[in-house]
Simulated assay, not measured.
Amino acid sequence: MKVKSIGFRNFRNLNESVVSTDAKVIVVEGRNGVGKTSFLECVYSSLLLSSFRTSRLSDAIRHDAPYCQMRCSVNKNGSQYEVFAYCDRDRKTIKVNDESITGYGKLFSLFSAAVMSYDDKKIISSGPEERRRYVNQLSCFIDAGLADAIRSYSAILRERNKAVKEKRADVLDALDEKIASIGFRIVDERRKLIPFLEEYVNGICRNVFSIPGKLGIELKSNCDVVDAMEYDRLLKYSRPKDDVLACTSIGPHRDDLIFRYEGRLVRDEFSTGQIRLLSIMLKLALIDMISDMAGYSPIVLVDDVLLELDEEKKHLVFQYLLKYRQVFYTFLPQESFYRDYCDDMLVYEIKDGRIGGDENGR
């Protein structure tokens, strides 16, 4: 998959522009705070109508504008797609080849984009929500139908939590049947996915970074059930506890991932540098799995991730990602190691939201 061009208006601090991205490697250089990450976010948002920086795409609208819009031209497995995305303060829409797309399942079946960012270390060092977000992203790109299932689950969960607080047993009976069906599907897909994830991460650990030993990944779930009927019974059994907590106490929204290296708990025993490297391996595994299981290469967006790595690992990651059809990078002006790795490269410079440079002036 390749984004051949991207156009945007009123997107954060970026000046309105149309930028050619028809190359294997796209590099955006600039000092901190000039718009490098915003450019990667714009590429991501134009494909998936969401942001990797905030929960609301409307937050990306320039402060003095009523809306933002993005256009991009995409080639995927020989097919051409023209994408138009629009967002104002109240709504957002996306059209692909002039057809309105409703539902994230359809969108995830068309496009995928994987982000590697400084915040990836939160997958390991922060709370369970970050790890669920990581697993959800991986699951949805591999099985696009899960995107709509996860959104439906969240909506029903909000209804159920409200019914629990209001002690509406009659409403809970109906909601439990719905949430059990969707919740079981989500948990079951996660259980199937984790062994593959573990295999991919360990392969990268050995073959890319030459690190011995084994990383274990365990799904910690409080609804380890065999089917939706058992899930429904478990929900009813948990109602007294739910009444005390005033919320739903079991379900995939409580899942977590536990990482162990040679039996040792990673979160407690790994250094900051080791956690950073493991978070990179988790993202590389995600990209590999999407490519292998979804059947096409996702767009890869790398935002200042390489800066904290030593020179050897920096080169290893850059070289590894060259196997994908298109990778976007952000770099500070003094970084130049990447220039000899690939001839099919466009380099742009951002200053105060203005994008300049190639083609092929660099």
Rank of each mutant, 00 (worst) to 15 (best):
K2A: 04
I6N: 03
F11Q: 02
F11I: 06
L14V: 00
E16T: 09
V18W: 02
T21V: 03
T21Q: 10
V25I: 15
I26F: 09
E29Y: 06
R31H: 07
R31A: 13
T37D: 05
T37C: 04
S38M: 04
S38G: 08
F39H: 05
E41Y: 06
V43Q: 06
V43A: 08
S45L: 11
S45E: 06
S46D: 07
L47E: 02
R56H: 12
R56F: 13
A65N: 08
C68D: 03
Q69L: 14
S73W: 05
S73C: 07
G78I: 03
Y81N: 04
E82A: 08
F84E: 09
V96W: 08
G103Q: 04
K106W: 01
K106H: 05
S112A: 13
S117I: 00
Y118L: 15
Y118I: 14
D119P: 00
K121A: 14
S125C: 07
P128D: 08
E129A: 13
E129P: 00
Y134P: 01
S139Y: 03
G145R: 13
A147N: 01
A149C: 11
A149M: 15
R151E: 10
S152C: 06
S154A: 14
A155Q: 07
I156N: 04
R158T: 10
N161F: 04
K165F: 04
D176K: 07
K178F: 04
I179V: 13
R185S: 13
R185I: 15
R185E: 14
R185K: 15
D188G: 00
K192Q: 09
K192A: 09
E199P: 00
N207H: 06
P212V: 05
E218A: 04
C223M: 15
A228N: 09
M229R: 14
E230H: 09
R233C: 05
L235Q: 04
S238I: 06
R239V: 12
P240V: 07
K241V: 12
L245C: 10
A246Y: 10
S249K: 07
H253L: 04
L257P: 00
F259N: 06
R260E: 15
L278I: 03
L278F: 09
S279K: 07
K283E: 11
M289H: 13
S291V: 00
M293Q: 12
Y296K: 11
L301V: 05
V302T: 02
V305D: 07
D310L: 11
E312S: 13
K313H: 14
K313G: 00
V317G: 01
Q319G: 05
R325Q: 13
R325H: 11
T330M: 08
T330H: 03
Q334W: 01
E335F: 09
S336T: 11
F337E: 10
Y338R: 09
D340M: 10
C342G: 01
M345L: 14
K351L: 11
K351R: 14
D352V: 02
R354P: 00
D358R: 08
G361M: 07
